[in-house]
């Protein structure tokens, strides 16, 4: 179908253009816009990770806020207790999240479907309650980054001079670019992985449990790796988020609304189990947020109702609807790349 192909190319072209524009936002856009889009990009990262977990690996976790909080607290610990650059804290946040994910996986992987979901939630609560005891990081009331931390961050001074902006604007720009790179990197990694032999095997398993063996993939091992890697990605994102927020409390770091409800709704509305789903979801989310932000709780109600409606009437979300209607496959996952087609 050449028309479909044409439209697919068009959308890819727009996508590329959008990415380029996103890169120059800190140079040409307002600071409020940079902060807004930072929020959108970080939610996209969290949604991409959760989608890999729940939509592709069948690991329906409702406790991923644990890794956001762990990343945030690790970064704070690095800055306050070890006095290192917050950027190192980001890497440490990912590493600690991944390390904690090991015992979490060992515990939860023995439980089936529904038990797994509840167990991830309980463990997230445990992590939150334990970190709320950490007096050096403010205990239950939380703490702020020391004054000047973000100003002294690697690269901020250079950005400040180059862009000729205030140091807080420069640090916003830096965290923004990091978020953009993280989002693109996560998307690319997910794409490459899902088209690899292991990734295709995983989708075969999702669609038909019996296929697992014939595909020659050890599902548990693969799922365990996905669990660890998405934990790391979520932790990195959590650390990055709280460099920009600059203040951490147990409630904020483990926020059920921000890091669980929003992330789940974004993925569901966009299309759980589809790769572009979180991107579509985050755009819808952003538009809704801008139009309904003044109405407080109404916003959450609308989001919840849309999420329910999508689950009832359009299982694979808005992206699924769009792809079915148009035949467009933006990031096709179905076709084997030539190399692995031969290797099997």
């Amino acid at each position: 179908m050449p028309e479909t192909l044409f439209r697919t190319m068009m959308i890819r072209g727009f996508g590329l253009l959008a990415v380029l524009m996103l890169f120059v936002v800190p140079v040409i856009g307002s600071r409020a816009m940079v902060q807004d889009l930072f929020g959108v990009l970080t939610l996209l990262v969290l949604a991409l990770n959760w989608n890999l977990l729940a939509g592709f690996a069948g690991l329906v976790s409702v406790g991923q806020q644990a890794f956001v909080g762990l990343g945030a607290y690790t970064m704070f610990a690095c800055v306050i207790l070890l006095d290192v650059d917050p950027l190192w804290g980001i890497l440490a946040g990912g590493a600690v999240a991944m390390i904690v994910a090991v015992p979490v996986a060992i515990f939860t992987f023995r439980l089936s479907g529904a038990y797994f979901a509840i167990a991830t939630w309980v463990l997230a609560e445990i992590v939150r309650l334990v970190l709320a005891q950490w007096k050096a990081l403010g205990g239950g009331t939380g703490t702020s980054l020391p004054k000047g931390t973000t100003k002294d961050m690697w690269g901020v001074q250079w950005l400040k001079d180059t862009l000729d902006v205030s140091s807080s604007a420069a640090s916003d720009a830096l965290t923004y670019w990091l978020a953009l790179v993280l989002a693109l990197g996560t998307l690319a990694a997910a794409y490459v992985f899902l088209r690899s032999k292991a990734g295709l095997g995983l989708q075969a398993i999702r669609d038909n449990v019996g296929a697992a063996r014939s595909v020659g993939v050890d599902p548990t091992r693969l799922k365990a790796w996905i669990f660890l890697l998405t934990a790391a990605g979520t932790g990195v994102c959590g650390a990055l988020l709280f460099i920009q927020i600059t203040r951490v409390t147990p409630e904020a770091a483990f926020s059920v609304v921000d890091w669980k409800a929003f992330v789940i709704f974004i993925t569901v509305i966009g299309g759980v189990g589809t790769l572009p789903g979180p991107i579509v979801g985050v755009i819808v989310f952003y538009i809704l947020q801008r139009t309904l932000a003044d109405y407080g709780t109404i916003y959450l109600i609308v989001l919840g109702l849309i999420g329910i409606a999508v689950m009832l009437f359009a299982h694979r979300g808005l992206w699924g609807l769009f792809a079915d209607k148009t035949g467009i496959e933006l990031l096709p996952l179905r076709h084997l790349p030539p190399r692995s087609a031969h290797s099997s």
């Binding site: 979901a117 109600i301 999420g307």
Partner: peptide, 30 residues
């Protein structure tokens, strides 16, 4: 609502009830 999403896959009912939870909670708040 729920009978429409019950099945082998636990994801749809889980997400629908999660959505309900948010809707009910914020509806009561409102």
């Amino acid at each position: 609502v729920l009978n429409r999403v019950l099945g082998d896959d636990i994801l749809p009912p889980l997400l629908v009830t999660f959505g309900l939870s948010v809707v009910i909670q914020n509806g009561l708040l409102e």
